[in-house]
Amino acid sequence: MQNRFARHRSRTAAAVLAAVSLLGAAALTGCDADGNRTTKGAAAEPREPSARPGPVWDRSPGSVAAVGDSITRGFDACSVLADCPEASWATGTDREVRSLAVRLLGESGTAARSWNHAETGARIAQLPQQMALAAKEKPDLVTVMIGANDACRDSVRLMTPAADFRASFEASMRQLRAGAPKAQVYVSSVPDLKRLWSTGRGNALGKQIWKLGICQSMLGDADDMGVPAVARRASVQERVVAYNEALRDVCAKDRRCRYDGGAVFDYAFTGKQLSQWDWFHPGRNGQARLAEIAYRNVTSARPPA
């Protein structure tokens, strides 16, 4: 019995000693502020800083390429029925406009590091080709403003279906990514065509110009407030909203794409901002407002809500 008791006591003592040793070792170790194990009484081993990726969105891009339609070409901003790319909100050099490129790059930088591939009359179906041209420039930023011509047709029946619009924009983004995988993309919403109709119809000369064939789906018979005309304009408005939803959704799937949050659609253009030649396209003042919106959104720390 005594021998068994002695052996049991010996084993117990050994276990206690082992536990004490473990506690002592634990007391000598701890964690530094970053959660790394250290030893008390000794200097912590130096550690390489963690590699943390920088922000995806660069708020100071060094070059700009523009794609889109007549608005980005500055159509009717300087003279009747003519492009005026120097007055473009995106890449123009007009000092009254102070384009996005001028605000980002300065005047000399705009001349050397910006490109305008937009085309008057372009619809979303032409955007993939424009994106391919933009990709060849290897720009830091690509601006997109497209969709007004898809809704501005001779009749509601001819408007681009929303599903086709979405598919074409997806194809456009794929085309850009094939040639410029790291380019940032700023996407403007389609302007509120119904508000432009409401604003412009107050000008008698503008309404006469509209009769020449400008955006008949919205602007045709501008003073007609009958049920069919009201329904026609409502259909155009709904389609523009659907286009903007497509732009927003497709852009959201690309980590280097930033949609304007509907800022251009929400902007209330006045007669002061519209072209004196057609009372529909932005004049120089309107182009300047578009440049302001774009610059604010491109340089913001966070994307628009």
Score class of each variant (00 low, 15 high):
Q2A: 13
I124H: 03
R123T: 04
P61Y: 07
S300R: 02
K211W: 03
K182G: 02
R239Y: 12
G262C: 06
D34P: 00
V102L: 14
Q287H: 00
N116A: 13
R296D: 07
S88M: 15
A90K: 06
C257V: 07
D221C: 11
A6R: 11
I214L: 04
K138V: 09
V102K: 06
V240L: 11
G261S: 13
D34I: 01
F165P: 01
S21I: 14
P181I: 03
K207F: 05
G106Y: 15
A65I: 10
A118C: 03
Q126F: 03
A19I: 15
Q276H: 15
S168H: 14
R11L: 13
F280I: 06
A118Y: 02
D154A: 13
S63M: 06
D58F: 12
T110W: 07
L127R: 02
V67M: 01
M145Y: 00
W279C: 03
R296A: 13
G30Y: 12
A135D: 07
L176R: 10
L290P: 01
G213L: 01
R255Y: 04
Q184A: 07
G202W: 08
S172A: 13
A231C: 02
R166N: 11
N149R: 01
A27T: 00
V190W: 12
R195F: 09
A43W: 06
K253P: 03
L219R: 05
A301R: 14
L247H: 05
G226S: 15
P85A: 05
P282K: 05
A125Y: 04
P55E: 05
P191F: 14
S99M: 08
Q129V: 09
L100W: 02
Q2M: 07
P85E: 02
P181V: 06
A222C: 05
A101I: 07
A163V: 07
A305L: 12
V20S: 15
V230Y: 06
S108I: 04
V187N: 01
T110Y: 07
L23A: 11
S168C: 09
D266R: 15
V250W: 06
G41I: 13
R123K: 12
V16D: 07
S188H: 11
R166L: 06
S50E: 00
E119R: 13
S21R: 12
R289L: 09
L290K: 02
